[in-house]
Amino acid sequence: MTEELDLRGEVCPYTFVKTKLRLEELDSGQDLTILLDDSAATANVSRSLRSEGHEILDLKALSGEVWQIVVKKNEIDLQ
């Protein structure tokens, strides 16, 4: 089952912080669909997700104002 996180109205860096916190609650291999309303935030979040080792499965504009990222959680243990 795909989890969804609606971050429309949120700004950087909280877009990524909230994405990261939600991912921590998911199991490794689980997907998360993220909705954003800013193209720069969409680029930042997807770049940060990749740099933390997660896999971007899909990234697209749903309309002129809404972007969607689908990410697959990869378990990373830096602690």
Partner: peptide, 16 residues
């Protein structure tokens, strides 16, 4: 989330 955002972002810290 806002108060601790700069350290939650750190890969070694996070929400955990």
């Amino acid at each position: 989330i806002r108060r601790y955002s700069r350290q939650i972002i750190l890969p070694e810290v996070g929400g955990k």
